[in-house]
Design a protein around this nucleic acid. Structure first.
Lengths: 259, 259
DNA sequence: TAGTGGTCTAGACCACCCC
DNA sequence: GGGTGGTCTAGACCACTAT
């Protein structure tokens, strides 16, 4: 009989149900690792149709508190140990200390971290990247593509692009592991002194493909971060194109109050 | 009869339809300002049920290319004039020039901008904000709540919180319009020299309430930005809590390669 | 095999918009 | 009033996961 009758409010039933479930999670009634009741059980409990429960669960998933798998059900996610990605991760002293920024940050947050190298080798520069590197589109550059895991789940993909004339004399950059301090340390070893890094962020919903790569619900937000590494000579010697699961990161930047 | 039979692929029909519509927009078949065909027309055109078209349109809305209004239909959005929010918006020279950062950035992007002041007055400091300001939770602070429009649509809400002992001698801060250069200029007028600003960003799906305030589709991503304004004495004299429609902004930060 | 989520249907009623 | 999107139903079939 359509919307509920008899002195009802404007807020749809499926939103009420979704809120109730989210509250139960936030209040700890449903703890991390617990299974959310199955959809058919919720149908009985709330006395609504399957379609309504279905929409409610879409809302619950959008909250990011729950992970749903097909024939299995919905499980309350382990605490999202949102990690800080602070702007001082690019300090030279960190590189000299041999710290890789990602691993250091994850350890600090008490999480296990893993990096999987997907590809290291030549690639034709995509437009957009080529613009930033100051080369022609389609020219050969070195691409380094990685997938980052935290606590066993993929949270970030990153691809670094470097101009060929910069990398051709630095064999370490072609290795899976470029050594302590990462590729920035190797570039500085070879006379490329960094002046600044410029990061551009944009948040948007994940495409289907991105969602599956990062094990997200489709439509969950991702953050697209592109970083230019600029040397003292004003040259961009690396562009890093990164896609992150938004609920796994916060970003912190310190902006000096310059004139 | 359930999913389409007879040699069909795994990709659901509603996704196919959504992709088709999105492609038509990206290809320019549907231009900004055009109306997307109504749902009942799409039902006829694709020969599927209303529920399927409904799910397809949810996907299309998630792309951010379309704006749907209730009794009216779905319109292709005017070019999302994604604006840059660069880190040099806090330069003293800009304040001395009397420029308000938001208006300047919008003009630069060729958009019309408007600010609506929702509230200026005392408020009990919310926890989280109080922590950042270095005051007790519940203590009275000055709150300044605004809603920012671009091209007529709301894109950002912002609330500034300032400790009472800082503001009590600066009457301009209680006015809707604090004068040229904004509240930061007034604070500097009264001896609060800024040393740095610290911005923290997090992207997440909008709640229902936030979605309606920013005229977004529910679940569309928002960026939650919190900024601490720190003086030379190391004191946080303002915390600005901002919620932005993610598709309306990119963020740019320049990070010096310090030691 | 039984239970789960995922897709789809066909139709109802409601609320909003505009003529 | 006639069109639009928004909610809800009751039931079907499919695909994945466990046992």
């Amino acid at each position: 009989m359509g919307t509920t009758v008899g002195g009802e409010r404007a807020v749809p039933r499926y939103v009420q149900i979704a809120d109730e479930i989210v509250q139960q999670i936030r209040a700890g009634v449903l703890k991390p690792g617990d299974m959310v009741p199955s959809e058919s059980e919720l149908v009985d409990r709330y006395g609504v149709s399957g379609g309504t429960i279905r929409k409610a669960m879409v809302e619950v998933r959008a909250s990011g508190l729950v992970e749903t798998r097909h024939g299995k059900g919905s499980m309350v996610k382990a605490r999202p140990p949102v990690r800080h990605r602070s702007s001082d991760r690019f300090r030279r002293s960190h590189r000299r200390g041999g710290k890789a920024a990602y691993l250091a940050e994850s350890e600090q947050a008490g999480a296990t971290a893993k990096v999987s190298v997907l590809y290291v080798g030549p690639m034709e520069a995509p437009t957009g990247i080529a613009d930033r590197l100051g080369v022609e589109a389609g020219v050969q550059v070195l691409a380094r593509r990685r997938l980052y895991f935290r606590n066993g789940t993929p949270v970030e993909t990153a691809t670094s692009y470097l101009p060929w004339d910069v990398v051709k004399d630095i064999p370490e950059l072609f290795a899976e592991n470029p050594g302590g301090g990462g590729i920035y340390a190797r570039l500085e070893d070879h006379g490329h002194e960094f002046a600044e890094f410029i990061e551009t962020l944009q948040a948007r919903p994940a495409s289907k493909a991105e969602a599956s790569e990062l094990a997200l619900s489709p439509g969950a937000p991702v953050v697209h971060l592109i970083r230019n590494a600029v040397t003292e000579e004003g040259r961009v010697v690396e562009v890093c194109d990164t896609l992150m699961a938004a609920d796994q990161f916060t970003f912190e930047y310190r902006i000096p109050a310059a004139d």
